[in-house]
């Protein structure tokens, strides 16, 4: 296996294990730390696809800012096991397990079909619909150019979204 494949499998395993540990940790601060590990693994995947800007911005925004806010809330709320509600009944756990299993079967069936999405050109595998191995678009210069010419309307709308979210947050949080 080439080095890229080894790194891919390692990062995927790390992401999955960290995600499962987020759910299984008893301590909420541990859950946040595992979630940060998930974000690092995902940024690693982005770097493998040569989307450097996306990888770093993922770290700055998600792992650096949003998780800090999560930690703020958790630390100020100070939850411990006594204040947690009673664990759910066995029937609901059983129903959850069955539903999760069905979802797994459906996803596996759907993804098995994805072999049709690969075409072989000259011995190497390429995707039929999306460009995956020529990774110039992830570089910040090209990304900026596309973002500000083709996708400028969604960009501006997201700025309106931020403004209204801030207005809403200030109205809720103001103390008078």
């Amino acid at each position: 296996m080439s080095l890229v494949e080894i790194i891919f499998w390692f990062l995927s395993g790390l992401a999955l294990i960290s995600a499962i540990m987020v759910l299984l940790s008893k301590n909420p601060v541990h859950s946040v730390l595992w979630l940060i590990a998930v974000f690092f693994a995902i940024s690693g995947h982005y770097i493998l696809l040569n989307a450097q800007f996306l990888a770093i911005v993922n770290l700055i925004v998600y792992a650096g800012a949003i998780m800090v806010l999560f930690l703020f809330v958790i630390m100020l709320m100070n939850q411990n096991a006594e204040t947690e509600p009673r664990s759910k009944s066995t029937w609901i756990k059983l129903a959850g397990a069955i539903a999760g299993g069905c979802l797994l079967i459906v996803v596996v069936a759907a993804v098995r079909d994805s072999e049709n999405l690969i075409q072989n050109i000259g011995g190497k595998a390429y995707a039929k619909t999306a460009v995956t191995t020529h990774g110039e678009i992830g570089l910040i210069e090209n990304l900026g150019r596309v973002l500000f010419t083709q996708y400028v309307v969604p960009f501006e709308i997201s700025s309106v979204l931020f403004l209204s979210a801030m207005v809403g947050a200030v109205v809720i949080g103001k103390k008078d």
């Binding site: 940060i36 770093i56 998780m67």
Partner: peptide, 9 residues
């Protein structure tokens, strides 16, 4: 920037 953001932790 990314590393400075992580230093908060």
């Amino acid at each position: 920037f990314a590393v400075v953001s992580l230093g908060v932790y």
